[in-house]
């Protein structure tokens, strides 16, 4: 058992989040997957903080959480307004940005 286990776990969680972003169409679920990716990064930060013997990593994780909270608020508001105009929360429906 070493700290590598945490890091590999974080990498796997990150990848699962990334794949989730790619395969899910519900904007809210996509958002949740992004949260998962952020969380896995937080785990990495905390692990490295412990390895290096400083709390700077924890502060980074703290800031990530704050930013994530702000991002969730704005992101969900955007999803709300998109839903209001398009009656859909599917990311595939907003596909006008193309050739």
């Amino acid at each position: 058992m070493s700290l590598t286990n945490y890091l590999v776990l974080a990498a796997i969680l990150f990848t699962i989040g990334a794949v989730g972003v790619l395969v899910r169409r519900n904007a809210i679920v996509v958002f949740m997957c992004i949260e998962l990716m952020l969380n896995s990064v937080n785990l990495t930060l905390v692990t490295f903080a412990r390895a290096s013997g400083t709390v700077d990593g924890q502060i980074m994780a703290f800031f990530v959480m704050v930013v994530a909270a702000a991002e969730v608020v704005v992101g969900l508001a955007i999803i709300m307004s998109i839903y209001r105009t398009r009656r859909s929360a599917s990311v595939d429906d907003a596909s006008l940005l193309k050739y």
Binding site: S2, L3, V8, R50
Partner: peptide
Amino acid sequence: IARATQDLPVTGLAA
């Protein structure tokens, strides 16, 4: 990561 941190020393936050 595994290769890079295989022998990562754990300092701990006791200090």
